[in-house]
Design a protein around this nucleic acid. Structure first.
Length: 130
RNA sequence: GCGGAGGGUCGGAUGGCCGCGGGGCCCGAGGCUCCGAGGAAAGUCCGGACUCCCUGAAGCAACGGUGCCGGGUAACGCCCGGGCGGAGCAAUCCGACGGAAAGCGCCACAGAAAACAAACCGCCGGUCGUUCGACCGGUAAGGGUGAAACGGUGGGGUAAGAGCCCACCGCGGGACGGGCAACCGGACCGGCACGGCAAGCCCCACCGGGAGCAAUGCCAAAUAGGGAUCUCGCGGGGCGGAUAACCCCAGGGCCGCUUCAGCCCGAGAGAUCCGGGUUGGCAGCUAAAGCCAGCGGGCGACCGCUGGCAUAGAGGAAUGGUCAUCCAUGGGCGGGGCAACCCGCCCUGGACAAAAUCCGGCUUACAGACCCUCCGCGCGG
RNA sequence: UGGGGUGUAGCCAAGCGGUAAGGCAGCGGUUUUUGGUACCGUGUACCGUAGGUUCGAAUCCUACCACCCCAG
């Protein structure tokens, strides 16, 4: 009964520390950089400059769900799902020294199957890294 | 049983794996353990608590709000009870419900006339006149217009009419009685005088300083123009040796105005101290006019006493992701049964809406389930 | 958290108690060989939604909805 049941995909080791974006200016800088649309969300990403006062080698990530996504319940749910895929995928496939921003979309971010969101994030990351 | 009225409660459950915020413990990387959204957390429409700002008190003015009466409350525009008006057979529900004889304003079109009495067609009398009619006077019953036309119906009366007179109804006043009051009843009197709109201005009564937890306080870091305190000094006159003390007279400023009280300034110089905006951290920050139970008072809102409980505190903002089973819901298939329905399997899939300083209300949204009380009709006893 | 504003035809809009201007666009016509221009004519409004006040509401009042802006 237990032969499959692989270990969970979450990296318990924490190869790279995830940090949260908190300043508006960081979000604005990320918005001007490369972007990769996905069915359930929009990914923005960029490599930080050396002169920015951040701990190098960390991956930073932010989440945005505007009023277009819906009311507070819908926005919170979309942000939680985005946060969850970021927690599962970014430590494995993200690049240290980069900032990422995930933007929620109305209806679909909360409705798509969870596995599809994860594979979409992997694909979008490859696109942004080019 | 059918139909209806009012009120209340709940608003998925359990578990596995991986996570999030906060508290506590372990020496630490890290681990263990406990707690972690709502009845509306919402809209931000009212009322407060709490902070900071503003010389104080009284009166006036302005502005804003409330608006039948009484009570409850920290307070309210909320709640309870009562009155009045309206809807309903009823339970019950609804009502911005003070004042139009303080004043101003408005009432389109139609109509003779729209608020103060008047008179277009009429009706009646008189004069003139061949008829049609003209003029003078009386009248407001009839006609027509309008949302609204100056009491209604009947009778008497009259030249024709009219509260001119009478009866009933309406209206106004009202001794007296009931009620804390709103208000209710009302002998009797008046003969009709008083159109509507105050969610038009307004009048009356009552209430109200301003800003808001991004308030405000503290700490640390890095940088330029300002303020506070103290000392010296400071208008005119009197007294005096005196820039001292005391007294008198002035000037300016401090709440929108006035009065009273009070305070400050009034030549500058020196010394000391502080602030402002930026970034980060800490506090404010969760014990709340709190919740539950019992007893007592009150028609009730609610109040009092006793006992018990400790119940989210984030800060680009935690309370989740995913899977399984069950429950509610909807659908399909099969079986049993006359039927209502029952059993099994499969699929579907969970109302509204998420704390942001806290509390009392209001308003709005809400799949479904359950409970209590009452009313009408039918049937049975 | 607090404050302010807007909503009228497909678009821009006036009107603030008495039955909804104007312009652009649209449609039809005249002029032109045709198109454009010019001229003439014409349709289109539950006045954001729902109640209320009033004889009468786009206008006044109340609640709600949507959008926009401002301050710390």
């Amino acid at each position: 009964m237990t032969p499959n049941a692989p270990p969970p995909t979450a990296p318990s080791t924490g190869a790279f520390l995830l940090e949260r974006l908190r300043k508006r200016s960081d979000f604005l800088r990320a918005a001007k950089a490369a972007r990769a649309p996905a069915p359930g969300f929009l990914l923005q990403g960029r490599q930080r400059h050396a002169d920015e006062e951040t701990t190098p080698g960390t991956i930073r990530v932010g989440f945005t769900c505007s009023k277009k996504v819906g009311n507070a319940v819908a926005r919170n749910r979309a942000k939680r799902r985005l946060r969850e895929i970021a927690r599962l995928i970014l430590p494995l496939e993200g690049r240290p020294g980069w900032d990422y921003v995930l933007v929620g979309r109305p209806a679909v971010t909360a409705a798509l199957p969870f596995d599809q969101l994860k594979t979409d994030l992997s694909r979008a990351l490859k696109k942004v890294h080019r």
